[in-house]
């Protein structure tokens, strides 16, 4: 049977076969993320917002209770979105619907899967439900996306079953600086692992706190075993294009759309900028006449206790 690559099974597949039960399928889960590449995934709170996102050409929408900048402003416990709203969003659009569950809250995840959600974001933007453990993501047919700031975090999440990775950035600030830092850090870590002689990989696995099999795979392929998007602070078409030029495969936009002065226009422009991220003339044209971007907060001035990115273990 001619299934896997000519090199045989990938490290990620072997890792799964070695350690995890046969639920869902790795290629089917990761495959959907492959189909989203080059696209924009937008945070939405209501079915109406989901329609705006779909009409603008979003490849998927992310359902959540409040957009990150409201969570940041209002505080309190941020939870999975109301199932009524999620069902409403699923019925309103034909593109895939993602939804956020709290870190470690596997029952919220079970509910999302039962609702028919296409992708679960086990997200640091919501208040964590477990101070030590993430969800065992292999137990679901529904695929997962998780945030990461470096290769260790990314490979731990993939080891737990995540089929897609995004940078964490600092959600709800409208400040791109941490998304850039995290995207660059992951790439730098990949280059480090790729250039190591093989005898150093076990120690790298220890130092990065990452599964050995997956470190070996990164060494062999020079990339993450799953699709890698950027998230956290993207507020303009130029922000999206910046991350794409740095080398991510697509972007999540949270508060940046519906906290701007003209969401439909901003959404449309960010989609176009993500397609033509390498074309300055096009980007100049796209960036005109959009009204105000979301009001921002300088992310470097957010005290560590209020940072979202430090959640996750």
């Amino acid at each position: 049977m001619a299934t896997s690559t000519s090199n045989g099974t990938t490290g990620a597949q072997r890792w799964k076969e070695m350690s995890k039960p046969e639920v869902g399928d790795w290629r089917v889960k990761g495959g959907l993320a492959q189909m989203l590449k080059g696209g924009v995934i937008m945070d939405v709170v209501t079915p109406d917002q989901a329609k705006v996102a779909e009409d603008a050409g979003a490849v998927s929408v992310m359902a959540l209770e409040r957009v990150p900048s409201d969570i940041r402003r209002d505080g309190g416990v941020a939870r999975m979105s109301d199932p009524d709203l999620i069902s409403g969003i699923i019925n309103a659009v034909s593109i895939p619907v993602m939804a956020k569950a709290r870190i470690g809250h596997f029952v919220e995840a079970q509910i999302l899967e039962a609702l028919g959600v296409d992708y679960c974001d086990e997200s640091e933007v919501l208040t964590p439900a477990d101070n030590e453990y993430h969800i065992d993501k292999w137990q679901y047919k529904m695929p997962y996306v998780c945030g990461a700031r470096n290769i260790g975090e990314a490979l731990r999440r993939i080891g737990e079953g995540a089929a897609m990775i995004r940078t964490k950035g600092e959600a709800g600030t409208g400040d791109i600086v941490h998304a850039v830092t995290h995207a660059r850090q992951i790439q730098a870590d990949i280059r480090t692992i790729q250039n190591m002689p093989t005898e150093e990989l076990m120690s790298a696995s220890r130092d990065f706190q990452a599964p050995y099999e997956l470190v070996v795979e990164v060494h062999r392929t020079g990339k993450l075993p799953v699709v890698n998007f950027a998230a956290g602070g993207i507020a303009t078409p130029a922000d999206a294009a910046l991350l794409m030029q740095i080398g991510v495969e697509g972007v999540f936009v949270g508060s940046g759309i519906f906290k701007s002065s003209n969401p439909a226009k901003m959404a449309d422009a960010i989609v176009r900028a993500t397609t033509h991220y390498n074309d300055p003339d096009m980007l100049a044209e796209i960036s005109q006449g959009l009204g105000d971007a979301m009001p921002g907060i300088e992310a470097n001035k957010v005290p560590e206790t209020e940072q979202l990115q430090t959640r996750g273990w």
Partner: peptide, 16 residues
Amino acid sequence: IPGGESTTIVKLLTRF
């Protein structure tokens, strides 16, 4: 014309 989201693809084909 690869996989992806057909609504997005048609939209961008038309727009461009």
